[in-house]
Design a protein around this nucleic acid. Sequence first.
DNA 1: GCCAACGTTGGC
DNA 2: GCCAACGTTGGC
Length: 138
Amino acid sequence: MKYWLLKSEPDVYSFDDLIKQKIGTWDGVRNYTARNNLKKMEEGDLAFFYHSNIGKEIVGIVKIVKEAFQDPSTDDHRWVAIEVSPVEKLKRTITLKELKENSEMQHLELVKFTRLSVMSIEKSDFEQIIKMSKEKAN
DNA sequence: GCCAACGTTGGC
DNA sequence: GCCAACGTTGGC
């Protein structure tokens, strides 16, 4: 069981859009590092859904329901897509700012490699962030 | 809108 | 295979 973080611009595809669709295809990834992460995903893995640009915050949790397959948005065989379904919306969103200000979260790829759109997360960090979302801010 | 940080492309 | 030029992403 692995843990991940998926980035999306909410004006293109938001967590609420995914909730409406029930199952969403995560396609359009055109970066090798991100693609390699997609290929490592297994059915049942969990991922955070992060809103980039607008909000800059983790908004919910999704589950991988279909492992990597040919990206339907291109004929180029180099790229893959996955399918996800929503698990739950966080009671309180966790902002990038908050993570950057947290001394225990400095090693997160989200903090260090801002441009990567699909990244893995340590189980302990995943659980810590969920814990944070259940507590009040500051 | 600007800029930093990368990633990609193409000339040599 | 190196590197300069260019393109893209995403935070601010």
